[in-house]
Design a protein around this nucleic acid. Structure first.
Lengths: 112, 112
DNA sequence: CACCTCACTGACTTTTTGGTAAGTACCTGA
DNA sequence: TCAGGTACTTACCAAAAAGTCAGTGAGGTG
C-alpha cells in the first residue's frame, strides 16, 4: 500500500504509518506494555519472524516503537511504544471500538 | 493486505474494511456529501477509473457507501455514505487528526 | 564438545495489489 | 452519421507485500 505523497490529509499520513497486514496487531499487542520479540511472536498469532521484525523495524524508524536490547545470553530485546506510539494508539481507539461494534456486520459482508 | 480472520480485535476488522490505497481518500471525499463518479475521480487525485470503481464496489459491498443510479443520458451515478459509513468516518476522525498533528514528523521519517 | 535458547538475517518464491490502455453502451445535439 | 459526455469493463502487465525456509552468533548447560 504505497501511500500518496505529499499527503492529502491526516488520514493519508496515518495510513502510511499503520499500513501493512501486521502493524495494527503489533500496536495492539504493545498497548498493554513492553513486549519481548518472542512474546510478540506468540501474541500476534500467525506472524512469521521475518514479517514481525520487518514491521517492528518500520515502526521503529517511524518513532512509533522503541527497541531496547539487554546484553544477556540468551539475548533479550524489548519493544515498547514511544510517546508518539501511545498517541497513535489513543487515536486508534475509536476505530477499534467501531470495528468491535460492527464486527458481525463486517464479518457478514466480507468478500468470500 | 489480506486481513486475518476471524478478527482478533476491532482494529483488525476496521483495517479489513478501510484497507487499500484509495479507500481512506474516497471516504474523505465523501465526508462532505454525495459525489458523482466523475467528481470523485477529480477529487481523489491520481486514482484511475479502474481503481476508483473497484474500491467503491468494495465499500458498497461492505455497506459503507451507497450507490444511486439516475437513469439519464449521459448517465449519472451518485455515491454517498451510509449510516455505517458515517459512523466509520466519525471513528476515523481522531486518526485523521493524529496524522495532521504529526504530519511533519511522519514525512520526515518516511522511508526514502 | 554438542546442543540449547533467542533474536534475528537473507535468498528465493508466491500472492496480492495496483497501473495501463483500450473498448463498451447509451442517448443527445450538430 | 458522427463526435461527445458519462460511467463503467476487460485483458494484460508491473510492482509491492507477504510467505518459506534455511542459516547465524554468542554464551550457558550437560
Amino acid at each position: 500500500m504505497a501511500a500518496v505523497r505529499p499527503y492529502t490529509c491526516g488520514l493519508d499520513a496515518a495510513a502510511d504509518v499503520i499500513g501493512g497486514k501486521w502493524k495494527p496487531r503489533i500496536l495492539w499487542a504493545l498497548h498493554h506494555g513492553p513486549r519481548r520479540f518472542g512474546e510478540l511472536r506468540k501474541e500476534v498469532t500467525g506472524v512469521t519472524e521475518k514479517m514481525l521484525i520487518q514491521q517492528l523495524r518500520e515502526l521503529e524508524s517511524r518513532h512509533i516503537v522503541h527497541r531496547e536490547v539487554f546484553h544477556q545470553v540468551p539475548p533479550k530485546v524489548e519493544y515498547s511504544l514511544t510517546e508518539l506510539g501511545e498517541s497513535l494508539n489513543i487515536a486508534l481507539m475509536p476505530l477499534d471500538q467501531w470495528g468491535a461494534d460492527h464486527m458481525t456486520e463486517i464479518e457478514a459482508s466480507r468478500p468470500c
